[in-house]
């Protein structure tokens, strides 16, 4: 089984993207042998009120009725009553994770708002995805974000909130395993594998139980991530953890 922990639905404002509805995305991923996915709302990044994007996602998930997708909430902790948004996403709509996008929502990744969100998610035992970026900033349209978080903010977040499971997403720079706290997990799609063996070294350093398969679909092609997963030289048990087992455990699938 393969579970993709890094997908999104909805319109990306700066370029056309195929497979952005849930039925299209499911067909796309299924054709490539992916058996399920965590999906976040791209609209929840760009709407002035992200909860409208979460609500659209909840409606689309309810219409799917096949259990392929699990929701990931986009929460902006700068907004009043964001805690109610989080509760509704998790308790009412059964979303399994939260995605923090401080560069897009305009707060400091290590400020009080970020800490409040990390704390609240931890208290609800909901993992927090922290993407280093959503797209490559070197070719960004002028209204888009022109930088990325890199890896260290996610590590720092995990250190400040040891009760919260933090998942670093869409990052290229692997950690020194000795410095990675136990509550920090890494999504693997952007980490070099054959080139200089960064991904195998990361797995050795932080353990196969701390790495998750993700693709970045539909903004990115899925095949590169599948190749990295497909050729990992691991025992069947460790390979299964990365392919799906860790996601099943973290997202309570």
């Amino acid at each position: 089984m393969i579970f993709d922990c890094y997908t999104a639905t909805g319109h990306w404002p700066f370029r056309p993207v195929e497979n952005q509805t849930l039925p299209e995305l499911r067909r796309h991923l299924t054709a490539l042998g992916i058996d399920g996915a965590l999906v976040a709302s791209t609209n929840a990044v760009f709407y002035i009120d992200p909860q409208s994007g979460n609500e659209e996602l909840a409606t689309a998930l309810a219409a799917e009725k096949n259990g392929y997708f699990y929701g990931c909430a986009g929460i902006n902790p700068l907004l009043p009553r964001w805690e109610e948004d989080l509760r509704r996403c998790v308790s009412e709509w059964n979303f399994r994770a939260v995605r923090m996008t401080p560069l897009y929502h305009g707060y400091d990744h290590d400020g009080p708002e970020a800490d409040a969100l990390l704390e609240a998610a931890g208290a609800m035992d909901v993992p927090v995805l922290i993407p280093s970026r959503l797209t490559d900033f070197r070719g960004a349209q002028r209204l888009d974000v022109m930088t990325e978080l890199w890896s260290e903010p996610a590590r720092q977040a995990a250190l400040r909130h040891p009760q919260t499971k933090v998942i670093l997403v869409d990052a290229s720079l692997p950690y020194d395993g000795e410095k990675a706290p136990d509550n920090l997990y890494v999504e693997m799609s952007r980490i070099a594998c054959s080139y200089n063996g960064h991904l195998p070294r990361l797995i050795e350093a932080i353990g196969a139980d701390h790495v998750l398969f993700g693709s970045g679909a539909p903004l990115r092609e899925v095949e590169p991530a599948l190749l990295k997963l497909g050729f990992l030289e691991l025992s069947e048990a460790d390979w299964q953890l990365i392919a799906a087992g860790n996601a099943q455990r973290l997202f309570k699938l």
Partner: peptide
């Protein structure tokens, strides 16, 4: 070509 992004090069061509 890959320019060091090996799986990215192979994968996006397949795509």
């Amino acid at each position: 070509a890959t320019d060091m992004s090996i799986e990215e090069g192979v994968g996006k061509l397949y795509a």
